[in-house]
Design a protein around this nucleic acid. Structure first.
Length: 281
DNA sequence: GTCTTTACCTGTATGC
DNA sequence: TGCATACAGGTAAAGA
């Protein structure tokens, strides 16, 4: 489940593998993955001969940026795996939707069985993520601006953390982990959080995301980095996927329930439910 | 404008 | 053993 740490891990791998290299050709691009006004054939033609400048990330979106300023927008969806390297096998694995041949003999491949990912073309100067809030690890995502965004919002903080227009990069795993670390109940209305709550949550978000990046992300089902390695953060999860297990802090049982259509994991003792008094204030 | 629900998609797990 | 069903969730769009 690629969230910010997993996408950042892929970003670093793709940049390291391809920076300064040229695209020889795009042997395969599945048109079903392509979004936006530029079609698959135009993207394939546009990429040929381009030299890679860098790989940018905002939230869970990547732009494989070329020296002309144009770029390839990539989103890994839920099951997307982007790998780069000299691939020993001749046949592409199942569910391969993008194959890019580089001039140094490497191949960049995108596999995505569920096809929730997407591919698009970014023109020079284009702002490819107009609807996203600040990146969760960016300098401009401050506790103060976070509190302003949450002000007056009635939705559960869990749902707001998943809203990429509020803050970009957090998915179901790290939303639950950050709320646990900040000791905030996931049903608490965003606008009811105190200044101290928001500061704790802001710090918890950044700490858990940075720690996960250090471990190259979490492999829960299928994530792998650009070199095909699994992430190492799974043992560090405190609540996600631990329903019924003992809370590492208080020993109580980890609960799970649906909030905003998403399974949410939390500790009822460490994350006390918002009180009636607080809710009526 | 805000919030909730649904569709998209298929591998994996579960139940009969 | 084999089949049917439920479940997982990032994003966007529709509905309330």
């Amino acid at each position: 489940l690629p969230e910010l740490p997993e996408v950042e891990t892929v970003r670093r791998g793709l940049e390291e593998a391809t920076r300064g290299r040229a695209v020889l050709a795009v042997p395969w691009l599945d048109h079903r993955m392509v979004r936006g006004p530029i079609g698959a054939d135009a993207i394939r033609a546009g990429m040929a001969g381009q030299t890679v400048d860098r790989v940018e990330r905002h939230g869970k979106f990547l732009v494989w940026r070329f020296r002309t300023g144009a770029g390839l927008l990539l989103h890994l969806g839920m099951s997307g795996r982007l790998t780069a390297g000299v691939q020993p096998w001749a046949a592409w694995p199942p569910h391969t939707h993008l194959v890019v041949a580089m001039s140094d003999g490497q191949e960049v491949r995108l596999r995505d069985p569920r096809r929730f990912g997407r591919i698009g073309w970014v023109q020079p100067g284009d702002h490819p993520w107009p609807n996203l809030g600040p990146d969760a690890l960016a300098r401009n995502f401050s506790a103060r601006c976070f509190q302003e965004t949450l002000g007056g919002r009635q939705a559960p903080i869990k749902s707001l953390l998943l809203d990429q227009g509020v803050v970009a990069g957090i998915g179901n795993i790290y939303a639950d982990e950050a709320l646990f670390r900040a000791r905030i109940h996931p049903l608490t209305a965003g606008g009811r959080l105190t200044t101290a709550d928001v500061r704790r949550l802001h710090r918890a978000i950044r700490q858990v995301l940075r720690a996960a990046i250090e471990h190259r992300g979490t492999t829960f089902r299928s994530f792998e980095d650009a070199a095909g390695r699994e992430g190492g953060f799974l043992p560090w999860l405190r609540v996600y996927g631990r329903t019924g297990q003992a809370c590492q802090r208080c020993g109580g049982a980890i609960q799970s329930r649906m909030i905003g259509g998403r399974t949410t994991h939390y500790c009822e003792r460490c994350q006390p439910a918002p009180s009636a008094e607080a809710s009526s204030r």
